[in-house]
Design a protein around this nucleic acid. Structure first.
Lengths: 154, 154
DNA sequence: ACCATTAAAGATATTAATATCTTTTACTAT
DNA sequence: ATAGTAAAAGATATTAATATCTTTAATGGT
């Protein structure tokens, strides 16, 4: 559904939303380590996101990437468009050239509600709202979020 | 989620289930045309499915591919395993190395029920049962199934 | 002014997926 | 037997995705 590139990009932007600010910029190296992604590849993606004004950056010492207020008000969907384009979501799960409610593939009515749901989430929530949800419900996006205790019980 | 190869393979096997029989074998050429897939590529896939005993075939005149009773009792899931392997379904939607109920990515609880549902459908229903459902509910898998009337109303 | 740091940009490399081509083998009908 | 047909097998080609490398530009601290 999403390319690796796009997955990296989404997690990066959420990571920056949570951990960076105008006076706490974060370099690619850190982000790549924290998200376990290939560093130079991620650099390219962040470049792309920066060109599209989805993240902010400055060069030089204390430089790095961060999100400003405007960036925080974009949607995850904007990231997807920037990196993958819109196509991947439109395509039929079984590869039919034409698949819709009228001409549904055998799994159309399983896939379709899911797509609507996740697409809705990506499109209607801002990055900022995502962050609130992530924090309120202990969602994981990077290594440091991991709950490593396998067993809890007595 | 599924590779093109796997999508072709699934539609092929459903197509054969519906249209072929021991004494009505179908050649790659026809199948490829009907499903709008690249012919030699599909040939490779059918070869693979044949090796794994998911479809049957004979060479020579009146030869071609078909499904026997045994083949009809496999699941779509077997096709997926044969072509893509199991991994694609296990992976996190946002690319987290570890993503489960305890360490969920931000969309885990949207994706997870969908995966269970579709995986269940692929695993628990036989090809034969799929065919019954396809026919009872007018599902589309090939060109000839298409309902081309765009508008119905008066 | 100079140096170290870090992103930007452009070029290149690698890999995996997709697709095609060629030769061989099996089978059928005549 | 022979010719024609169709899949099997193996080799090759193309493309897109992923990943890396190198050079350049901007910035900040000394």
């Amino acid at each position: 559904m999403l390319s690796n590139a796009c997955k990296y990009a989404i997690r990066s932007i959420l990571y920056l939303a949570i951990n960076s600010s105008e006076d706490n910029k974060i370099g690619v190296k850190i982000i790549a380590e924290e998200l376990e992604t290939p560093q130079p590849f991620l650099a390219k993606l962040l470049q792309q996101l920066t060109r599209d004004k989805l993240v902010s950056s400055t060069k030089g010492p204390n430089g790095g990437f961060y999100l400003n207020e405007k960036n925080l008000n974009n949607a995850v969907w904007d990231v997807i468009i920037s990196i993958d384009g819109t196509d991947k979501f439109d395509n039929c799960f079984l590869g039919l050239a034409k698949c819709d409610d009228r001409n549904p593939c055998p799994v159309h009515f399983i896939v379709s509600p899911f797509k609507e749901k996740i697409l809705g989430s990506f499109r209607d929530k801002t990055i900022e709202e995502y962050v609130v949800e992530i924090q309120n419900t202990n969602r994981v996006i990077s290594l440091k979020d991991l709950d490593l205790f396998e067993d809890e019980g007595s």
